[in-house]
Design a protein around this nucleic acid. Structure first.
Length: 180
DNA sequence: TATAAGATCTCCT
DNA sequence: GGAGATCTTATAT
């Protein structure tokens, strides 16, 4: 049994900003690593920019799972991007984790990234630093024994809202949320 | 079967 | 500010 916070059952654009300030913890190697989430984007169920828009596929089936499920996909053939599934089961909504601040295991993240700066300042970098890849797709982020978990943080003071990045459809929706 | 485009990052200038 | 790396899926022949 896992304990999924109730706000994750809400629509993506409502749930997304509430994830800011939460910690993403991974224990996929010897050393645990944690980042505090500072930038996310919402991908809704009726959203042309969402992978779920054209329906259920093998690659995106994680998006149609329970809220609190991890959805990992490959971006541009070489990066992994991580999302938190939200909304009612079966609707296909998720929150893309775009960036964060390293808090635990910084040395390990620097080793995985092969550099010491810009460790987690983008979706692909975030997954690389945390050691997240396709093998973690469909994981339950709230199961006690899960190698990747979300841990509640302090609520953000001021949230900046703007248009999403890198998409070509529904570009004007202000569904990108970040804190300093 | 083929081709194009994509929720990106790094390195170079 | 621009090109290249390189995989998956959608849409067209």
């Amino acid at each position: 049994m896992s304990h999924v916070p109730s706000f994750l059952l809400d629509n993506a654009e409502v749930a997304a900003p509430r994830l800011l300030g939460w910690s993403l913890v991974t224990e996929v190697g010897e050393v645990p690593t944690t980042v505090v989430l500072t930038e996310v984007e919402a991908y809704g169920s009726e959203d042309p920019a969402s992978h779920a828009f054209r329906g259920r596929r093998v690659a995106n089936r994680a998006m149609f799972g329970r809220a609190g499920t991890l959805y990992v996909y490959r971006s541009y053939g070489l990066h992994w991007c991580a999302n938190v599934v939200c909304g009612p089961e079966g609707v296909g909504a998720a929150i893309l984790l775009r960036a964060g601040v390293p808090s635990v295991g910084i040395e390990e993240m620097a080793r995985r990234r092969g550099r010491r700066d810009h460790l987690t300042s983008g979706p692909g970098k975030l997954t690389a630093a945390l050691g997240i890849d396709a093998s973690h797709n469909r994981l339950d982020l709230f199961a006690p024994g899960s190698p990747i978990r979300l841990v509640k943080g302090v609520g953000p003071k001021k949230v900046t809202v703007g248009p999403r990045v890198g998409i070509s459809k529904a570009v004007d929706l202000p569904w990108r949320f970040r804190i300093d």
